[in-house]
Design a binder for these strands. Structure first.
Length: 465
RNA sequence: GGCGGCGUACCCAAGUGGCUAAGGGAGAGGUCUGCAAAACCUUUAUUCGGCGGUUCGAUUCCGCCCGCCGCCUCCA
């Protein structure tokens, strides 16, 4: 079997990836904070983790994936307070919306989606463990992590203390801490409605600690890989390492993999610039989920991805090309006696590209070379039945990662009957050489968003765009 | 101030110390078609931000400059 390589943020090099207990890969991905609808920048990261997951599967690994749902933090608490809702009543709809977006974007489900609010006991246990080791200390009503007690602090992000201090924004409550760089594990004494009992009084968990507690619960003290957006490298992942390794004395994850940011029209997405989009916004503008998926998938994960309307249209066209090819391959009738084409493969090159640090451009290049070649053979009518079957299998393998071939929506029966009735009427007109009538029907269907394709095998139709 | 990334055709985007600088989109011409669509063929970078250097040879390595972007305590 070939090897699988990934760029490891810990070493800043591309390394051979091997799980601790092959073939099972245990991975943890930082998920959403459910204070609002997730935006396309978030989905860039989640599509990346989906690509990683599917590439691991294509390679032959088994995957156990955990993605956390952060349902308690300042933003969710503020949001709930503003609307006068209980925290869970506020976050619930956003959690549902998140899963619906994942479904439409065809991001495969992780095995577990633990929520912070459902793991308070585990979080408290972890903080106690850190206390016992002398790494956590109490100050006021809160508990903090003592950076000085963990010698590897800064190893992942490669930020030294001077760098951190030079650019530091000063936190409002830093006077509670022994050192500005210390971070909070348990926030107490805020007299908020959102609080749990703990050995330190009522309070709530700090941001980073949930991931340490939950990854440990579902994946063990050491697992294979941890991924998320680049901005999480510091402080979130650095702090996760400090918490987990501080408590266990064992490495947290062997590989850290980070997805670069998405830009919109060349700039960081922000509400003030007016270039802030949720997945729902884009759907509303008429863009298909598969085009969005393809666009998010198509740029290497360690490069910034510039999201533009033009690129979205290009992605839609590329998906259309693959789908047209798939349909054409399914219906083409191989002539008897055609020779098997030995050169007809692409899945291996596709897979090998992905095994090389998810080189998606190379993978797509191999796929499209294949599409052109097979189309050519179909045109020449030299594609054998065996080659056709193999080509379909090759395409299926590639699509097990891309997942863009299936149509985005279920057609409702009434619409389909209407379209098919008009197609039949048009074909009668064509048989009687009434081309004016035939063209009128084509135009009518066009206004309904339907494009026709006449072929020796009959008339096919598809949705425009 | 510290750390890091990027700049390849009209757009997106791979890649390599020298063999025709992938692939997708868009445009142009052609084949096919009643018309279309799809598909195929041809075509669009003697050139890889600029200037130097190393080298027989650099887009690829080194230096400087210009431009863009990110991180440096709660942002994917």
């Amino acid at each position: 079997m070939s090897d699988f390589y990934l760029f490891n943020t810990l070493t800043r090099t591309k390394e051979k990836f091997e799980p601790l207990e092959p073939p099972r890969v245990r991975m943890y991905c930082c998920g959403p904070t459910v204070y609002d609808y997730a935006h396309i920048g978030n989905y860039r990261t989640f599509v990346f983790s989906d690509l990683l997951r599917r590439s691991l599967l294509l390679h032959g690994f088994k995957v156990l994936e955990v993605m956390n749902i952060t349902d308690v933090d300042d933003r969710t608490i503020d949001g709930a307070a503003k609307k006068g809702l209980e925290l869970s009543a506020y976050t619930g709809p956003y959690i549902e919306a998140f899963f619906e977006d994942l479904r439409q974007l065809r991001i495969r489900q992780a095995e577990h989606y633990p929520r912070a609010t459902e793991h308070i006991a585990e979080i408290i246990a972890l903080v106690r463990r850190l206390e016992e080791r002398g790494i956590a200390y109490r100050s006021g009503d809160s508990v903090y992590y003592r950076i000085g007690g963990f010698k590897n602090y800064g190893r992942l992000s490669r930020l030294d203390s001077s760098g951190i201090q030079a650019g530091a924004r000063v936190e409002a409550d830093n006077y509670d801490k022994e050192n500005v760089r210390d971070f909070v594990l348990w926030k107490g004494g805020r007299d908020e409605s959102v609080a749990w009992d703990s050995p330190w009084g009522r309070g709530r968990p700090g941001w980073h600690v949930e991931c340490s507690a939950m990854s440990m619960k579902y994946l063990g003290e050491t697992f294979d890989l941890h991924c998320g957006g680049v901005d999480l490298t510091f402080p979130h992942h650095e702090n996760e390492i400090a918490q987990s390794e501080g408590a266990t004395g064992k490495p947290l994850a062997r590989f850290w993999v980070h997805a670069e940011h998405l830009l919109v029209d060349g700039q960081k997405m922000s509400k003030s610039l007016g270039n802030f989009y949720t997945f729902r916004d884009l759907k509303q503008q008429g863009h298909s989920a598969s085009a969005i998926r393809y666009l998010l998938l198509g740029t290497h994960y360690r490069s910034q991805l510039n999201f533009t309307t033009e690129a979205l249209h290009a992605a839609a066209s590329a998906v259309g090309r693959l789908r047209d090819f798939h349909e054409r391959l399914k219906i083409c009738s191989p002539p008897p006696g055609a020779r098997e084409e030995p050169a007809l493969w692409c899945a291996q090159a596709f897979r090998e590209a992905l095994e090389d640090d998810l080189s998606i451009s190379q993978a797509l290049s191999a796929l499209f070379d294949f599409v052109r070649e097979v189309n050519r053979l179909i045109d020449l009518r030299t594609l054998s039945a065996e080659s056709r079957a193999r080509a379909l299998e090759e395409l299926r393998l590639c699509d097990s990662v891309l997942d863009v071939l299936e149509p985005d929506r279920e057609e409702d029966e009434e619409f389909v009957r209407g379209v098919e009735a008009l197609i039949e009427e048009r074909n009668q007109a064509r048989r009687s050489r009434d081309f004016g009538r035939a063209d009128n029907i084509r135009a009518e269907l066009d206004t309904r968003g339907v494009v026709l394709e006449d072929s020796p095998q009959g008339t096919r139709w598809k949705r425009k765009g």
